Structures are given as C-alpha cells and as structure tokens.
Simulated assay, not measured.
Amino acid sequence: MAVLLKFLTALSLFVGAARAQGFMPVPPDDGPCPVFPVVKNFDLHAYLGRWYEIERFFNPFQDGSCVTADYALFPNGSVSVLNTDVQEGASNTIAGVATLSDDPSAGQLFVEFPFTAGFDGGDLGGNKPNYNVVATDYKNYAVVYTCEFFGPELKFEFSWILARRPYIPSSFLADLKAWLQLVNINAKRYMPTVQTDCPNRVAS
C-alpha cells in the first residue's frame, strides 16, 4: 500500500508538471519493463566527474535547463551525487548518494535523493538498482536508464543521455538513439535539454 501511495503521488506530479509545461510526453510502451543491457566491467573511477545532460525522458522531478551531474567518491566508497540546473535564471542544486550494486563489476547503482519520495531501488522491493549505465565510453558519453513496473498501465521509465561536454554531435546522437531502439529503450521518448546561455559557465 505504501508503494502504491508513493506511485500515485508521483503520478499526480508527473501529469501536473506536464500540463504546466504545455505538453504531454510520449508515454511508456505497454507491458512490463524491457530487458536492457548494462555496462560490464564498470570502471567507477573513470565514470566520476562532471556529466552534462544532453537529453532525458520527461519526468516530474526535472524541468530546468543547463543540467549537470557531478560524481565524487566518499572515503567510505559510496558516491556523492550533486545535480545542478537553472530555473527562471536561478541555479539550483540537489545532493544525493549512490552506492554500487552487489555486483561491483556491473554498471548498476542505487541512487537516493530527498525528492524521490521513496522511489529508490531498496524501497520498491527486490533491491533493484535504479541507476543503470546502459552504455558509456567514460570520456565522451553515457546513457542511464531505469524502469519500475507496477502492473498494467502503471510503469515509470527514466533515462538520460549524458556527455562530458554540453553538446554532442548530432550524427553520433542519431546513431546512439538507433542503437537504443535495438536494445529495447524507446528513444522517441527523449527530449533535448537546453545547454545554452548557462550562467557562470566557462565555454569549453
């Protein structure tokens, strides 16, 4: 019951945020969560540092521009997560914590933020990681995906395309999306993130 209440709360946020932005996003595909790949022999240390959000699936927790994610290692081995965006000209940050899954060689982590209303892997049952690195070369790009299935017509999918710079070549992005379609991730759901006119950003 607690999980269902959290889902309904998040669903209302999802619909309300979409209406506020004047559109309805492409909905998730019917059926359960897809089978998707994750990076093997994951190199956490190479993954640390700053990533710029290039595109994302619509979700109720994000509506800003100039989005970045900074990952750093805590002394205890967990990962500091600092997400930053710009809304109405003001910079905002939110801090979280990530830990590797039971298989440290897989690109799967548990990430918790204060605003996720309990939507972290451990709270949904089954201890499923909620941050799955589907693809990365560590130096240029990464794709993150997660999915939770609650039953018919009750499914949440989140995904982000990240890059080490605020832009990515359009030809590479097109090829990447074509590959994502082949591995059961609906690339039609991605929306571009504005990465221009960002305050206090040094041109790269």
Score class of each variant (00 low, 15 high):
Y167N: 07
M1N: 11
S101Q: 11
W51A: 00
V111H: 09
C66W: 15
F119D: 05
P32L: 07
F113Q: 01
L124K: 02
F158N: 14
A18S: 14
K188D: 11
I185C: 05
R19I: 15
G122C: 03
Y145R: 12
D29C: 10
Y47G: 00
F115D: 04
V194K: 13
V143S: 12
Q108F: 04
G16D: 10
V97F: 07
F156V: 14
R201S: 03
D85Y: 02
S101E: 09
G31V: 02
F74P: 00
P27T: 08
F150K: 06
F150N: 03
F110H: 14
S171I: 02
A117S: 11
E112Q: 14
L73H: 00
V134E: 12
W160G: 03
L182K: 15
D137Q: 02
P192T: 03
F58Q: 12
Y131V: 12
P37C: 08
F57T: 08
A178T: 15
G89H: 11
D43K: 11
T193K: 07
D70H: 13
K139I: 04
C198V: 06
Y167M: 04
P34M: 07
I185A: 04
M24V: 10
L13Q: 08
V134D: 11
N184D: 15
V86P: 07
R201V: 10
G89D: 13
I168G: 00
N200P: 00
K6Y: 05
E88P: 00
I161Q: 11
G77C: 12
A187D: 09
D103T: 09
S159R: 04
L48I: 07
D30Q: 11
D70G: 02
T116K: 00
L44F: 05
G107W: 10
D70V: 07
A174V: 10
V67Q: 04
N127M: 01
